[in-house]
Computed example of a mutant assay.
Amino acid sequence: MPKRKNTDIEEYTNAKGDRLFRFRLYLGIDPATGKKVTVRRSKLESYATADVLYNKLAAAGIPHTYNANMTLDALYEQWFAVRRTKLKPASQYALQRKYEAYIKPVFGDHRVSAITAGELQDFAIDMSKRLVNFTVPINYVRSMLEFAVRKDVIAANPMLRVDVPGSSEREKRDTSTNFLESDELRTFLSTAQDVSQDVYTYFAVLAMTGARMSEALALRWSDIDTDTHTILIERTVTSDKHGRPDIGPTKNGVRRRVPLNEQLIPILRKHKLATLSGEYVFRAVDDDFPVDRANPRKWLDAVYEALTANHEQIKRVTVHGFRHTYASLMYELDPNITIKDVQHLLGDKTMKIASEVYTHVTKEGHLRTLTAVNKLDVL
């Protein structure tokens, strides 16, 4: 007799003496009720019959009851229960926030079967007026309604009859110049030093490593190797599914070592002496955990306020602009640096930032050489 692999299936004998099979299968938590779902089957005439039924029920998962009166809120709960299994906790939280902010106020209490293509067209146009990345909530609604079709809540997806606008009416910020020139960076860091040790060290790390904002916050002292002159970047400050701070892998899951600038070593040593002992370089006061992700933007504002007070005028950049600054300096300092080199240092899966900055820097270089050529007076 072949070995029976499914240990959840058991053999038993009924009152008449018949040899039968039964099983109990746990399917999980029903997202609609929050209760555990377990199914039981018995009086099965053979192990093979029981095994086939067991596998069929396991594959089908938790049974749901759908009806014509289902609201989009109710549909969202069941759609999200599936969708979240494919997302990181931070992405789950971001999706929930977008639903609460943009979709729920418009369609949350609507019956799914009553939502019309006309209403969805108005929604698409409104999103294109309000958001730069307006297709995100539109695509969520499309996906939810497609889910409803598959579950026989509606016969067809009305979103398929919507003409989505080709572009947003909100002007997209030009990020190609979102970096500081070397003299501007010196002025910025000099002023940051007057603001606080934390602020100065943080922006020095950003400018000299190309780390993302939350990657720098997640740095541990053990990541800094002064012997090999490298910094390991392998984690970031993120959010769990409830929006609470958490530590996770980098944005693209790329673990990388970047060169440790000689000038950064004494800055980090001084910072370590001036702060509370702990695992993280930029730790919170009341806990050995990175400072809040809102801090870098506050620190940036504080430096620009100090620059204004000192009557210093430099270009306004975002915190993310220090990644662009790092890339810009790499191209400026070594003409042999390639876009691929910078992409690797930044830990990007695409060449978007490296290419954008390269294009701008080479244009600037062309203008400088053109000016120099025009100054030649040899004829």
Results as ranks from 00 to 15, higher is better:
R4C: 12
K5I: 08
D8K: 14
L25C: 00
P31Y: 00
A32I: 10
V37S: 02
V37G: 02
E45G: 05
D51P: 05
K56M: 06
N67I: 06
A68L: 10
N69F: 08
M70E: 11
M70N: 07
D73K: 06
L75K: 07
V82A: 07
T85E: 07
K86T: 11
P89R: 06
P89Q: 11
A90M: 11
A90P: 06
Y93F: 15
L95I: 10
Q96E: 15
K98V: 14
E100Q: 15
Y102G: 01
I103S: 01
F107P: 00
H110P: 05
S113K: 09
A114Q: 15
I115N: 04
M127I: 03
F134R: 01
P137I: 01
Y140P: 04
R142S: 05
S143E: 07
L145M: 10
V149D: 04
D163I: 13
P165N: 01
K172I: 04
R173S: 07
D174M: 08
T177C: 09
T177A: 11
N178F: 14
R186M: 08
S196C: 11
Q197T: 00
A204N: 15
S214V: 00
A218K: 05
L219R: 03
I231Y: 11
I231E: 01
L232V: 12
R235P: 04
H242M: 15
H242W: 14
G243V: 00
R244I: 03
R244N: 13
I247V: 12
E262Y: 13
K270A: 01
H271D: 00
H271W: 00
L273S: 00
A274Y: 00
S277Q: 13
G278H: 02
G278Q: 00
V281P: 02
F282Y: 02
D287L: 12
D288I: 02
A294E: 08
N295F: 08
W299K: 00
A309W: 06
H311N: 12
E312C: 08
K315Q: 10
T325P: 08
A327I: 05
M330Q: 10
I337D: 05
D341S: 05
L345Y: 09
D348P: 06
M351E: 13
A354H: 03
E356R: 09
K363H: 12
E364K: 13
E364I: 08
T371E: 13
A372N: 14
K375T: 11
